[in-house]
C-alpha cells in the first residue's frame, strides 16, 4: 500500500513538473493580464488577437505548409531510398545506412550551419528562394522516413512480390501494387514524424530561412526577446491551442490503437 502511494506520488510529481508551466500559461491566456502571478479579469482578447492578427496567422500557416510540404518530399525520397537500399548489395546498403545516420545523430545546429555554408556561401543561392529552407527540412526528415520504412521491408514476405511477377506483373507495377501497399504504415508513421520534426525545428530554420519568413519556433524566440506584450500573450493562447490539440490527437490515437488491440485479442 505504501509502495503504491510512493509510486503514485512520484508519477504525479513528474507530471506536475512537466505540465505546470504550460497549464499556468493556459489559465493566464484567458485573462487580460500580461504578467504571470498577478490577478486579472477573464478575457478572450488573446484568442481574438491570435485569430485576427494577419502576421500571426500567416506565420502559423507558413509553418504548417512548410512542415507538410517538406514532409511529403521527405516521405517520397526516404521511401524510395529505403526500397533501393533494401534490395542493394550489402556494401551499397551499408553506405546508404551510414549516410542516412549522419543527420540523425548530428546536432541540428551543425546540419543547419553546414547546409547554409554550402548553399548560400559557396553556391550563392539566395535564401529568399526558399530552396535552402526546404532542402534543410527535408535533410532533417527524410532519414527518419527511411528508418521507419526499412523495418517494414524486412517484415515483408518477398514471395508475394515474386508471385506477382510470375503472374505477369511488370517490375514497376509489382512495386507499386504489391510492395508499396505493404509499406504504407511505415510511410505514414515516417511522414507524421517528419511533420513533427519540422514543426519543432528551430536551428535549421534560422540558418536557412528567408529574412521575412518565420516559423512558430523562430517567431516565438524573437517574441520572447521583444517587449511586445500583446504578441507575447497571444502566444500564450497559441500554446494552449496547440497543447489541447496535441493531447486530443495523441489520446484519440491511443484510444483507437487500444481498441484495435482489444479486438485482436478477442479473436
Amino acid at each position: 500500500m505504501i509502495k503504491k502511494t510512493i509510486r503514485f506520488s512520484w508519477l504525479a510529481l513528474v507530471l506536475l513538473f512537466m505540465y505546470v508551466p504550460v497549464l499556468t500559461l493556459m489559465v493566464y491566456s484567458f485573462t487580460d493580464t500580461s504578467v504571470i502571478g498577478t490577478s486579472g479579469n477573464f478575457s478572450l482578447k488573446n484568442y481574438v488577437t491570435l485569430f485576427t492578427t494577419e502576421e500571426l496567422s500567416e506565420m502559423i500557416r507558413g509553418t504548417f505548409v512548410l512542415a507538410v510540404g517538406s514532409a511529403a518530399i521527405a516521405a517520397v525520397l526516404g521511401t524510395v531510398g529505403a526500397i533501393g537500399a533494401f534490395y542493394s548489395r550489402s556494401a551499397g546498403r551499408r553506405a546508404l545506412n551510414f549516410l542516412n545516420q549522419i543527420p540523425v545523430v548530428n546536432a541540428e545546429v551543425v546540419t543547419g550551419f553546414s547546409l547554409c555554408v554550402l548553399l548560400i556561401v559557396v553556391f550563392g543561392r539566395s535564401k529568399e528562394t526558399f530552396f535552402p529552407l526546404v532542402a534543410g527540412h527535408v535533410v532533417l526528415e527524410a532519414p527518419f522516413v527511411y528508418l521507419s520504412v526499412l523495418p517494414r521491408l524486412k517484415q515483408m514476405d518477398n514471395s508475394i512480390y515474386e508471385a506477382a511477377r510470375d503472374l505477369g506483373a511488370g517490375a514497376a507495377s509489382a512495386l507499386f501494387r504489391v510492395v508499396l501497399p505493404q509499406l504504407i504504415p511505415g510511410i505514414v508513421s515516417g511522414f507524421m514524424l517528419a511533420v513533427t520534426l519540422s514543426l519543432d525545428d528551430y536551428f535549421i530554420t534560422t540558418y536557412t530561412k528567408p529574412a521575412t519568413f518565420d516559423t512558430i519556433s523562430t517567431y516565438v524566440v524573437n517574441a520572447t526577446r521583444g517587449s511586445h506584450t500583446e504578441i507575447k500573450t497571444a502566444l500564450w493562447a497559441l500554446s494552449s491551442v496547440i497543447f489541447v490539440l496535441i493531447l486530443a490527437v495523441v489520446l484519440a490515437g491511443n484510444f483507437v490503437t487500444g481498441k484495435r488491440m482489444e479486438g485482436e485479442n478477442d479473436r
Binding site: T24, D200, Y202, S217, S239, F243, I246
Partner: peptide, 18 residues
C-alpha cells in the same frame, strides 16, 4: 511523452514565465 510533440520554444517560453 506528449510534451515532445509540442513545439519546444513554446514550452520553454512557458517555463520562463513560471
Amino acid at each position: 511523452i506528449a510534451p515532445m510533440w509540442i513545439n519546444f520554444t513554446l514550452r520553454v517560453a512557458a517555463l520562463k514565465e513560471v
